[in-house]
Design a protein around this nucleic acid. Structure first.
Lengths: 390, 390
DNA sequence: TCAACTTTGTTTGTCTATTAAACAAATTAA
DNA sequence: TTAATTTGTTTAATAGACAAACAAAGTTGA
């Protein structure tokens, strides 16, 4: 019985969210337009707008075009009312960004990391966060939150239970950072972060139900359902990279066999490449170069990997009936060579029902998806509870 | 911008739902207890309770035990304020039930069907619904809705796009029935219906995120996330029976290869049985009998099928991190022979994280799951909009 | 050019529903 | 008996949405 009750304050908060949401989504827009679209009374909108102006979350910017009567007052979202920090801890890099409230990158730092000890890595993360905070412009609300994306399993309490590629186990990252920084901090799995980034900054279309497939060394999946990030009971959803697509198949790093990521990841690609003399020591970037110069073996390699990615994607489509599938992370760079086999596989293996209203796309946020995602996550959290800042 | 706005009426409606929900979940209970548990003010609870009593959805039943002061007035849910009709259209049977508002079956009809034409089947469904309506006891609200479960793909508008086993294609069932019956009608996929039934009537535990796996001739999946039935953008979610678990594997009835249901369904079981002389013409029930008499081949057969079911279940667990997996439909009858291989497979193939707070269970609603589910669906819908009946 | 109409946004008063506080009723404990 | 406790109702205060009236600033058209 932890059910929230409903009263006047909640109503006001919700309506304020609606009004603010209308402005962030549709600005420039007038009070009258918001009232009409939302169904709220003109008076209600006016009063909420005035509060939002007092809070400096929005501002008026002169008169707009008349539509046959008094000219409307144009309202705009104050994108610089505060700033958010997003960080993506990768396997061999750390990317940190400062964004404004609509995700424009104000400042970024990108540091390659190489064989750091756990403590060195944590210290570097802390140093980088402090650097980002220092570079944040002055504003009404300052730093409104810090989001961190991690390539591993994160529980509901911000603890990283397992991040094999970082060699982390049971790292209470939230705790470590909260001791140092007095801001709202959000720890998210990298794929979840990327999914959130795509929901917020990706191409419009159907974003309410989208699946973000992060194809890097491994495969992770971020799930947005009914416009909310789905985490599962403990926060371990989206480990679909380890679903079986081939019973008794290839051995996976997780110890199991036949996992999707044993067939459709960068790891699988590089392993397959070893079978070819002239590719045996290539990196992903080198393979992409080879493919661009039309090396037949490499093209076939990508075709094969693409097909396997398509099989996993097909499984997700059948399970979720999503509006959008987005392929992100490192292998998105190979779009030119894997898109066709992915799409072909999906078309061949799904019923046409599942293909209506469904688009497969490649991330156009490239490596920023995760960092922008967690940053946006902090922003959304801030805008939903802005009453506490009054 | 179809966003709902918030006002006094909505607040009242929501709070009334909370109060009614408290009673259905915790009755016998007093006003004071509801107020304390919900956080609502005593006066608010009292006033809402009085309305609910006027609506005959609840009633007072004398004084309860004192806890050191005035004795509380015990409130009970009026389980007979109305009745709901649930129907499960199976491949070779139609099961119809009349239930009260908490899912007690008041009356049921079960008809075997055999080679009926489409029109004959529709006519039978209509006749049966009318029969159920006629048998519904008189009550304040009468028949509050009709739910129908169908073994096929149902879109958001109650249209059955494809039900291979019924040989249906593009049947606008909702339309057909609304022409005949003037009650709220809900058409649901059979697995979704079963999932809803389990959420409402299954064992308590974690029900907010549960996956119902309907293992019959084929395999369908019903998905309850955050306590809501998840349908996907068009209503085609849960076709996980056709996810690939074996690339280039067995041919499936869907035309694709290597689908889960080509390995882990009743269809697969019977097909495998054909390899054994003495089992080649057996039905599921006969095979279960053989297994009970410890026929080694049959036991091995079930072990194999169970393992394959376990593989698909593993995939779902990794994707959803659910609190509960429930195996239902016909193969649930073989629980004794497939439970161990399923559980073993899951334990072997998932990380221990995914096993915490996760239980695999077999449906104990047996063949009633779907009919009870759609019936409950109609009830919940009724109780959420009961304001319209004032 | 001016009257009529439109559109935008504010002001005013009404109404609904929650809440706190006081109160009444019923019971236990001392 | 009396005091304390618990339950449930009544009363008054308050918040906030809404409708209607109004003011301000346009456009249109004869």
């Amino acid at each position: 019985m932890k059910q929230k009750t409903w009263n006047h304050q909640v109503v006001k908060k919700k309506n304020k969210e609606i009004v603010l949401g209308a402005i962030t989504a549709l600005a420039p827009i007038s009070r009258a337009d918001i009232a009409q679209r939302s169904g709220l009374n003109k008076a209600t909108v006016s009063s909420l707008i005035n509060e939002l102006i007092d809070e400096e979350l929005i501002y008026e910017s002169g008169p707009g075009e008349s539509s046959g009567g008094r000219r409307p007052v144009i309202l705009l979202f104050n994108e610089q009312a505060g700033y958010s920090i997003g960080m993506d801890i990768g396997v061999n890099y750390i990317l940190g960004v400062v964004t404004d409230l609509v995700g424009n990158i104000i400042y970024e730092e990108n540091e390659a990391i190489d064989h750091l000890s756990f403590q060195e890595l944590i210290d570097l993360v802390k140093k980088m966060i402090q650097g980002l905070i220092d570079r944040t412009p002055k504003s009404r609300y300052g730093v409104i939150g810090i989001g961190i994306g991690v390539p591993g399993i994160v529980d509901k309490y911000g603890k990283v239970l397992l991040a094999p590629n970082l060699k982390w186990k049971d790292v209470n990252l939230l705790d470590l950072l909260e001791q140092e920084f007095d801001y709202p901090i959000f720890i998210e799995n990298e794929a979840n972060a990327g999914a959130y980034g795509e929901k917020r900054f990706g191409e419009r279309k159907e974003r309410d139900n989208l699946i973000y497939v992060s194809v890097g060394i491994g495969i992770g999946v971020g799930i947005i359902l009914e416009n909310e990030l789905y985490r599962g009971v403990n926060g371990y959803s989206g480990e679909s990279g380890h679903m079986t697509i081939m019973v008794n198949g290839e051995l996976c790093t997780c110890g199991s066999t036949g996992c999707w990521e044993a067939y459709g990841s960068e790891h699988a690609l590089l392993k397959e490449a070893k079978h070819f003399e002239h590719l045996s020591h290539s990196t992903l970037d080198e393979l992409i170069q080879m493919a661009e110069s039309k090396d037949a073996d490499t093209l076939e390699l990508f075709r094969k990997i693409g097909t396997y990615i398509g099989i996993g994607v097909t499984n997700l489509i059948k399970t979720f009936n999503p509006g959008q599938i987005i392929i992100g992370n490192r292998l998105a760079k190979a779009k030119d060579f894997i898109e066709k086999p992915i799409v072909d596989t999906v078309q061949k293996q799904t019923l046409h029902f599942h293909q209506t209203d469904m688009k497969i796309q490649f991330s156009n946020l490239s490596l920023y998806a995760a960092a922008l995602g967690v940053s946006a996550f902090a922003v959304d959290n801030f805008l939903k509870i802005d009453e506490s800042h009054l």
